[in-house]
């Protein structure tokens, strides 16, 4: 009995630790997810939808790794951003996930000097990695991201 409880506790702990990166198996359409997030979330400035090419360039991602990408960006006044990448396979998704984490670190370092008020928002960025979809979301209300994606799941 003790052994069973300890095993269950270990699994529970494992799920808790991985809570910051949601590794659900659901894939999202890049444009649909980005549009839904932009429409529903709150940002410090109005974001503009940019091109997939801009997304690959900003993140330093080889476009061959992705079938599509969607990005909403700001002027630089804030760190607010939405980026959704549809990767061609799970291996590519790992590479893209690394690039997304690098982007988050880059923003945190850059804004720490000349926009320190943005740093807490960057630290609480939501990064979601499903089988072949990687999402980064920096916004004023990151807790709402999960609900919005759940709505997409149900549609």
């Amino acid at each position: 009995m003790k052994k069973i409880c300890s095993i269950i506790a270990a699994f529970a702990l494992l799920f808790c630790i991985s809570g910051c990166v949601d590794n659900t198996a659901k894939n999202y359409d890049a444009n649909a997810a980005a549009d839904a997030l932009n429409a529903a979330l709150t940002f410090g400035e109005s974001l503009e939808k940019s091109t997939a090419e801009a997304a690959y360039s900003i993140y330093g991602i080889d476009s061959a790794l992705c079938s599509d990408a969607a990005i909403y960006v700001g002027s630089g006044a804030t760190a607010d951003e939405i980026a959704v990448f549809n990767c061609i396979d799970t291996e590519s998704a790992k590479t893209v996930l690394e690039a997304v984490n690098s982007r988050k670190a880059y923003l945190e370092e850059g804004y720490s000097s000349y926009g320190p008020d943005q740093v807490p928002k960057i630290k609480s960025a939501v990064i979601i990695s499903s089988a072949e979809t990687v999402i980064l979301c920096i916004c004023e209300n990151p807790d709402a991201v999960g609900n919005i994606l759940e709505t997409l799941n149900n549609n």
Partner: peptide, 30 residues
């Protein structure tokens, strides 16, 4: 940065906080 972010220009090498010293040490996003 907005030139790159909005996809208005191709060859943009811009970094938040970049100055005449750190242009030799810092890198662009990605």
């Amino acid at each position: 940065i907005s030139f790159k972010n909005y996809g208005l220009a191709k060859n943009v090498y811009s970094v938040v906080g970049l100055n005449v010293d750190t242009v030799f040490t810092k890198s662009c996003s990605g």
